[in-house]
């Protein structure tokens, strides 16, 4: 099948790629761009480990046909977090709260947290639960993840 060509801004850098139109965004990210921080846990949008942000909106990249992501889209994966002050604040909070155990869900979980705090840096408990309902963690029982999000919110750089 004929490939499509897309130019995106990925983690702050412009990238042009060609791929079959229905290739999963997850595969383009992991295999074509080698951002292997993005994880596949279920392949059907349930676990959230493959969550990335498209123009700031979290999506499960296993359910996105890469051809459907238009030119000019800003894609943020876990690897892009440390390039921003907010991203670093979030990472620090996850480390100091003890929110990461096996770490396999963490890249997706961080993206859900980042999407939330970018829009709403003073989230209520309910906001936090709602924003992370699409991410499954089997290790932590979520308690320390919630603490990390609260901690990140406290330290969130506000302009």
């Amino acid at each position: 099948m004929s490939n499509v060509k897309r130019t995106w801004n990925v983690n702050g850098e412009e990238k042009t790629l060609e791929f079959p139109p229905l290739r999963r965004l997850l595969d383009v990210i992991r295999e074509d761009m080698r951002f292997t921080g993005c994880k596949e846990g279920c392949g059907e949008g349930e676990c959230g480990a493959c969550t990335v942000l498209l123009d700031g909106v979290p999506v499960t990249s296993c359910l996105v046909a890469a051809g459907q992501v238009p030119d000019g889209t800003q894609i943020l994966t876990v690897e892009g977090l440390e390039k921003t002050e907010q991203g670093r604040v979030l990472q620090e909070a996850y480390v100091s709260a003890g929110a990461s155990q096996c770490g396999f869900c963490i890249p997706g979980m961080l993206m859900a947290s980042f999407a939330l705090l970018s829009k709403n840096s003073r989230p209520t408990e309910e906001d936090i639960l709602d924003a992370h309902g699409g991410n499954i963690c089997r290790c932590t029982g979520y308690v320390k993840i919630i603490e990390a999000v609260r901690l990140a919110a406290q330290n969130w750089p506000r302009k």
């Binding site: 951002f35 292997t36 921080g37 993005c38 994880k39 994966t77 876990v78 690897e79 977090l81 440390e82 990472q91 996850y94 480390v95 100091s96 003890g98 990461s100 155990q101 770490g103 396999f104 963490i106 890249p107 961080l110």
Partner: peptide
Amino acid sequence: STRVDAPDKVRGRAVY
């Protein structure tokens, strides 16, 4: 002590 493996994990650098 916070976890020794956490910094790599939150940066997506842990290699599985």
